[in-house]
Amino acid sequence: MEHNAIFNIQTEEDFLTQALRIFKFQYDNNQVYQSFCSYLNTDPNTVHTLEQIPFLPIEFFKSKDVLSTKDTPQITFTSSGTTGSETSKHFVTDLGLYEQSYLKAFRHFYGDIKDYCVLALLPSYLERTGSSLIYMADDLIKKSNHPESGFFLNEYEQLHQLLLKLQKTNTKILIIGVSFALLEFTEKYNMSLPNAIVMETGGMKGRRKEIVRQELHELLSKGFGVQKIHSEYGMTELLSQAYSKGNGVFDCPAWMKIMVRDTEDPLTYLNTGKSGGINVIDLANINSCSFIATQDLGKINQDDTFEIIGRFDNSDIRGCNLMVL
């Protein structure tokens, strides 16, 4: 199936055209998704709008092989989960498509990755295998071509000295880190980094008490000496990410879209500004499933940005979830 068309989307009409094309492809080729659609009595020939497309509950990735191709997976991304909980598995048959997605999205929101020194403070992810975030961060580090770019496990003093050095040379810095590690760093060091983008990927992962996003960002802003804390919204089951440049307000790349469903009636969609369950359309996820009903709660703003406001009470704690507001 032709993939590049999704990265040329310019209008809402373009998005709908590609979404319907991919829906029909996945209905025909993804046995798990087709069975789910059939359970809802969905006739693909009568689907003409985004609202008519069924969204596969994200829990299916824990128990089923969600694939729309017979190609052999090049890699299997897994969720972190908690002790004793079942993890999601995302079988990726085209790593090039994943790389295109995150590189094009990063360029759209932040410019050329070669302009940055990329520092990844992701200890909990480095301590396990199968993380899609580690794959992306590793590739960004390599493509930055900066000699100081790299991963940090718990070498906080080494990171501190490097940041001081980079700040003196006015180097543009991207610090991408899991929330508890960023907090631990700011409790040891107080910095002023006007040339830095600090991007939290969410999750205390059982390492610290959960705090609301506003408090987290205030602490991190003060500790790193930056005005805003950026955030990344992604998950194991997706091949695309949305980004926030502050205040927890996220933008999607052109091939990704958020819809908000009624928590009491998952087939009903809510108007702008009303809170409900987050459905994600990720057109880059062609070879898996592009239409996923997550366990996140959120709302869409008037300008099509969105906010995450928590999670369903009965859902597992996930590695990539954001702070509960």
Rank of each mutant, 00 (worst) to 15 (best):
T72G: 09
N195A: 09
E127K: 13
M323A: 15
T171L: 07
F306V: 12
Q100W: 02
D115I: 08
Y189C: 14
N287V: 00
E200Q: 09
L219Q: 13
L322D: 12
L216A: 06
G81D: 12
S132T: 03
K274M: 13
C320E: 04
D28V: 00
H90A: 02
D262S: 13
D282E: 02
A120C: 12
L67A: 07
C117G: 09
N287M: 03
K228C: 01
K168C: 07
G177R: 07
L122C: 08
A196I: 13
V178Q: 05
Q52I: 09
E187L: 11
L133R: 01
D112V: 07
N314Q: 15
T11E: 09
N29C: 00
D43A: 11
F7R: 01
G150F: 02
E307L: 06
N314L: 13
F250C: 10
V260D: 02
N30D: 03
T17R: 15
Y33C: 05
G248V: 00
Q167N: 15
M136L: 14
L103E: 06
T11F: 05
I58H: 00
H48A: 14
S124C: 06
L183D: 01
L56V: 05
G225F: 03
G248L: 05
L103W: 03
S132K: 08
I53D: 07
A196S: 15
S231N: 09
E218S: 12
L153I: 11
D28S: 02
S63T: 15
F23W: 10
Y39P: 02
T171V: 13
N29Q: 01
K205D: 08
F312G: 06
N154C: 12
K209V: 10
Q34I: 02
I278Q: 13
E155D: 10
I113G: 08
F25T: 01
H146L: 00
C252G: 11
Q52E: 15
A120Y: 07
F185D: 00
L220G: 01
S179F: 07
G277A: 07
G225S: 06
S101W: 04
I281G: 06
T76V: 14
G96P: 06
R261M: 11
I278N: 12
Q26R: 04
N4K: 13
E232Y: 00
M204T: 11
S124M: 05
G273E: 05
G273D: 04
E86A: 10
A137D: 11
E232Q: 05
C37P: 07
I292K: 09
L50S: 07
F306T: 12
P253L: 12
A120S: 14
I53E: 03
S221A: 10
V92C: 08
L297V: 02
S144T: 03
V198A: 09
S221P: 00
E148W: 08
E232D: 04
T78D: 08
T49V: 03
E232N: 04
S79F: 12
Y189P: 14
L174F: 14
I197W: 14
E13R: 15
L56T: 06
A284K: 04
Q241D: 11
Q34Y: 04
R107L: 14
A293S: 15
V118I: 14
